[in-house]
Design a protein around this nucleic acid. Structure first.
Lengths: 207, 207
DNA sequence: TGACAATACACACAAATGTGTGGTATATCT
DNA sequence: AGATATACCACACATTTGTGTGTATTGTCA
């Protein structure tokens, strides 16, 4: 009922040349440095910078590319580059066929654990201790946190305590007042003063 | 006792200022576009482009950065590119300073959950059920699996059972024979025939 | 004391890069 | 025929960006 159009972006029609320009930009960005206007022209065989600018103009108009004025190489792709992992099936959901023909879809690897958050908002902490063990968060896990000064009831948050310690706990409100709760019966709830630093968005564990 | 040298690349000594310059470059590259010399100067508070060039010179000399001549923004990191999440601290390790100047290091995000494995070897399964709950693997988690026909004792593996079902379990050997064990006392060990599909290398959970 | 490295600035100049205006030609659609 | 989109080029100009040379201060080490 909902979500019919999720991920259903209408791809604008591109002429073959426009496609080539876009692909060159993609390639260069993938290789590190976005190209200058003249570099694009050189590659595509255009003798005039004006020509390239015409192409950029349409690509911008079609929403595929963004630019900043008066900045060298300031060409950005609207689409998300990053590499993807195939989702082949679900555990206990039957025999997965590992052939690429059977791939059900893709997880955008970046997206998977960072969402579309900006770089500045996100940082990682390595988990120490077992206070969140019942929430499936173990020692050594990497907790990816999105900076936020507040959070909602039941969110898992990174909080700064009075003793200048940072801890990962579940935020709970009881009769209007917030406190912190471990996910481990051996730890008592924390009712002292604390400050929410950010909200847990992802846990990553390597074996 | 073992692993002393794991990940112990000899890092050239950097002064705090040099570190800051490097971190700013990292940040900008992470955000898409490497900075110009003047942008670095502006950020770090240098009034002369010469100062910035001095810093770049040492960073190049110390092998941390590469440049191309006469090309705008042509600053490259020597370290593995892909995008990185800063590690700012460890949970319960004190108050993290969220400024990029204080960044302790980086997790290579790609590396973090894929290792250096090739794309072809890796696939993902979404976890269903609670059979591995005591190992901190919850319903809904994404299990990243590296294809392998075998595994070692105590590895968590994706295994294909006789009834054509795939399950995530811990591989155990008892007197030379392998069987599968859940991480949940409600589930009995599996002694029937099975085939190891791959080994769990990473778990990712989104909130 | 002298050498050296780190830290910084000023400023001129050259090269790279982006902007803007105007022009030509071809094909398609109405 | 006129409007419109695609597909180019020329070239002047402004701005950004990189380069190069000199100078100065501070602290350390021999």
């Amino acid at each position: 009922m909902c979500g019919i159009s999720v991920g259903m972006e209408m791809k604008p029609y591109l002429t073959p040349k426009q496609e080539k320009v876009l692909n060159f930009i993609r390639k260069r960005i993938g290789e590190r440095l976005p190209p200058t206007i003249r570099e694009i022209g050189e590659e595509l065989g255009f003798k005039s910078t004006g020509t390239v600018r015409d192409y950029l103009k349409v690509l911008i108009q079609k929403g595929l590319v963004k630019r900043m004025n008066n900045k060298s190489r300031a060409i950005e792709l609207t689409e998300r580059a990053s590499f993807k992992i195939p989702i082949i099936g679900t555990i206990t959901a039957g025999k997965p066929n590992l052939a690429y023909e059977e791939i059900q879809g893709y997880v955008d690897a970046d997206d998977l654990f960072l969402g579309r958050l900006g770089f500045d908002d996100v940082f990682a902490l390595r988990v120490k201790g077992d206070s969140m063990i019942d929430a499936g968060i173990l020692e050594g896990d990497v907790a990816v946190i999105k900076k936020r000064p507040n959070a909602d009831n039941n969110d898992i948050v990174a909080a700064l305590l009075d003793n200048n310690e940072v801890t990962l706990k579940r935020l709970r409100s009881r009769s209007g007042k917030f406190h912190l709760e471990a996910a481990n019966p051996n730890y008592a709830p924390i009712f002292e003063e604390f400050k929410v630093i950010g909200k847990l968005i992802t846990v990553i564990r390597k074996y």
